[in-house]
Structure formats: structure tokens, C-alpha cells
Design a protein around this nucleic acid. Sequence first.
DNA 1: TCCTTAGTTCAAAAGTTATTGAACAATTGG
DNA 2: CCAATTGTTCAATAACTTTTGAACTAAGGA
Lengths: 118, 118
Amino acid sequence: MTLPHPTADQISLPIVLAVLGDPTRLAIVRYLASKEGVPMNCSKFLDLASKTNLSYHLAKLREAGVTRAEAVGTSRLITLRRDDLDRRFPGLLDSVIAAASEDKALPVVGTVDAEIDS
Amino acid sequence: MTLPHPTADQISLPIVLAVLGDPTRLAIVRYLASKEGVPMNCSKFLDLASKTNLSYHLAKLREAGVTRAEAVGTSRLITLRRDDLDRRFPGLLDSVIAAASEDKALPVVGTVDAEIDS
DNA sequence: TCCTTAGTTCAAAAGTTATTGAACAATTGG
DNA sequence: CCAATTGTTCAATAACTTTTGAACTAAGGA
């Protein structure tokens, strides 16, 4: 892991809440949760925002400690930091994801392009 | 109730998260939760911010549907909208409050002035 | 009525976050 | 090596949020 991540105990509640309080980022987290365990690369989220803007939002999520990004080749494999978040803020991620899944106003990943399996 | 409040189904997840993603507002919610059932007036929170700024933050909380404010005389009696929030986002408020209670970096209400009972 | 208390509103300033495009770097395949 | 793919960085701008002080309203008590 080359990219900067906070340690679990550096993760801050107000920062996590503020970072999740954005529809684009909430949609990313909702999608990561729905594919839990499967690392995603950034291009998966290109229907939510431009490449540059996505880079910005994904950096926010990573710097807040919500996601982990690992550089593999030219890709970044992105995963939810569920263990760390659950340890720091028990129940929070689950309730956010459950609520996000009910939210009809949130953008959804994977509705523009069809899924492309390797 | 004269002041504008969203109905329960108008409460939006990203807006609630964004509103809670501010240390001053999180401190207010944490305190309201700790005195649940007891309506608070705004002056209770004067050690967190100026009167004007407090008015702003309390309006944000109210407009997001996190709190309810009732005008009684010249006071506003403020309560948490726990029922509505629990119905819309099960488990969210509890996990946020539990995490906020552990957060040593959050400002705390009632440490500057001693409690003044009527 | 006049004064105090409790809180709001308004406009301005300060600060922060989001979005964009152009330029860049690094890896991989041909 | 060359080109394509994947993503970052930078600077500019746009858009929003927070904070402030002065002026205000509305209720209640002396």
C-alpha cells in the first residue's frame, strides 16, 4: 500500500459522516458494500462523475479511512475498510448502507454501462 | 409548531449525514440524546458557539429533520426526532450517538457553565 | 410602558469543498 | 520503443458553508 491511509484509531467520526454526506461518495460506498470482498477499480464509478472528480472523491473516502486503495499495476484496487469502521463505530456502516440501499434519490453504480466481466 | 420541519419521509440520508458531520452539531445531538425527553432551549449550547452561529447550526439540524423545535414564549424547545430517524434509518442514530460519546475530540455541552436548574 | 431575555434575520466576509481541463506519471501490451 | 490504459496532480473557478456583527422581533416582567 503506497497511498496514504489513516490508521484505524485516527479515523474521526465527524470526518467520516461528512465524507458520507455526499451522494456520489455514498453511492460508491453502497456499491462497494454490495460487492464486499471484491476489490473495485476506479473506472467502475465513471458513470457517477468525471475521472478527475472521481479521483477527488475516492481520495476523500480513502483519507477519511472509509476505503482502502491498493496500487496494482496502473489500477487502484478499492475496498471498504469494514473491519476498522466496525471496530471504531459499531453498527454505523451497516445502518448507513442499509439506509442508502433504500434511498431512491441516490445515484447508482452500474446502470449506464452493462457489467463487463473480465 | 411554527418553524419549518421536513416530514419524516422528506428526511434525506446524505443531508442528515452531512449535517451530523460537523463537530458543533454532533455535540448538540450527543447532548440532546443524553437528556432524551427533556426539551432543551438554545442557550444551553452557548458554550459551543455564538448566539447567531448557534441559530444557524440549530436551523441546519431542524431543516435536516434531526431535531424538532417548538416555540414556547421567547424560547425554542429543542428535541431529537428519534422516532422519525429510527423509522427512516434504523440503527443510525444509536450508532452515531454511541460513537460520538466515545469521541474525545468532540466539544462537550455543559462544561463551561455549571448546570443551572430553573 | 419600558426593559430584559431569547432568539432570528440579514448582508458581508472568510473559509471550504466540488468541479473542470490540461498536463503529467506509470504500467502494460504490441 | 510506442501507444494505450489508468489514474494523479495542478491551478482555476464555481459553489457552497460557516462565522460575524448589527439590527430586529416577540414575549414577559417590573
